[in-house]
């Protein structure tokens, strides 16, 4: 199994754990992820203004490059996935923007949205298959009660992202069960964590995170997993803001659990964001 792979800036720095564990697990699962040669930052947020095209040209470059190698483009960071998937959708559905982007980029071949963007979780579910993954599990996470946190970027807007049932998703819970863990259902699993508001309005985000953490705790979670570096930061950093430095619920990337279940590495001691 071979795929083009788009990492994104954060995975090379603050969220290196996410990338390292994901790549290691992929190798162990016999999946070849070929990092794109010349990728650029996706811009972190999808441009919602429709009167300019510059902000997503970098995404179009990556999408076009993936098409040239004829492979599906795998993403790992939820933000990059969101941006690439939506940029691709625009290229597919908005002729005007598509023409402008092509004219501007002067690509050797016209790009019209032919690449399929899939997230690492979709890769596990749809390409490898959770049953195949289950067979590779060496150290099942039996007895561990884990809450999945989806956040916004993978799910919404549902019509474009088509990731899962946006109001009642199950992919992360199915993933956790595949690893042998017990998935904790709780109402806040698809809520917004506060995203970039933590740049300016930490107190708002702290309140949002508190609700998420408390909800997960009340439903019996012993740990929480996510797929987004910014969710991860908010859940960890701002959790401590309301608990006066105490970490009541450990936060992991989903790939860390994967790595552990595959017997590749024990989960690291709980680390603070910094």
């Amino acid at each position: 199994m071979r795929f083009s792979y788009y990492p994104g800036c954060t995975l090379k720095t603050t969220a290196a754990v996410l990338e390292n564990s994901a790549l290691k697990a992929a190798r162990a699962l016999g999946i070849e992820l070929l990092e794109q040669e010349e990728w650029q930052c996706c811009g972190a947020v999808f441009p919602l203004t429709v009167d300019e095209i510059a902000p997503f040209l970098s995404s179009v470059r990556s999408l076009a490059a993936a098409k040239d190698t004829g492979e599906k483009l795998v993403t790992l960071c939820a933000a990059c996935h969101h941006v690439l998937k939506r940029a691709n959708h625009v290229m597919k559905t908005d002729k005007d923007v598509c023409n402008k982007a092509n004219n501007y980029l002067q690509l050797p071949d016209q790009y019209r949205g032919g690449t399929e963007v899939i997230h690492y979780l979709e890769l596990l579910r749809d390409e490898l298959g959770f049953s195949a993954l289950a067979q590779k599990v060496k150290k099942p996470l039996t007895g561990q009660k884990i809450a999945a946190f989806y956040g916004c970027l993978l799910l919404r807007p549902p019509a474009v992202m088509q990731f899962d049932n946006a109001e009642n998703p199950s992919i992360m819970e199915d993933f956790l069960r595949t690893l042998g863990a017990t998935a904790v259902d709780y109402p806040y699993r698809t809520e917004c964590c506060g995203v970039y508001l933590s740049v300016q309005n930490e107190e708002i985000v702290a309140g949002m995170v508190e609700k998420i953490i408390n909800s997960a705790l009340r439903h019996g979670a012993e740990a929480i997993v996510d797929a987004c570096p910014l969710c991860h930061y908010n859940l960890l950093e701002l959790q401590q803001k309301t608990t006066h430095g105490k970490l009541t619920l450990p936060v992991y990337y989903f790939t860390e659990l994967l790595e552990e279940a595959l017997g590749l590495e024990d989960r690291a001691e709980e680390k603070m964001a910094i």
Binding site: G8, C9, A15, G43, A44, A79, L230
Partner: peptide, 8 residues
Amino acid sequence: MPEQGIVS
């Protein structure tokens, strides 16, 4: 703060 947050 991750780059994603700063760029956002």
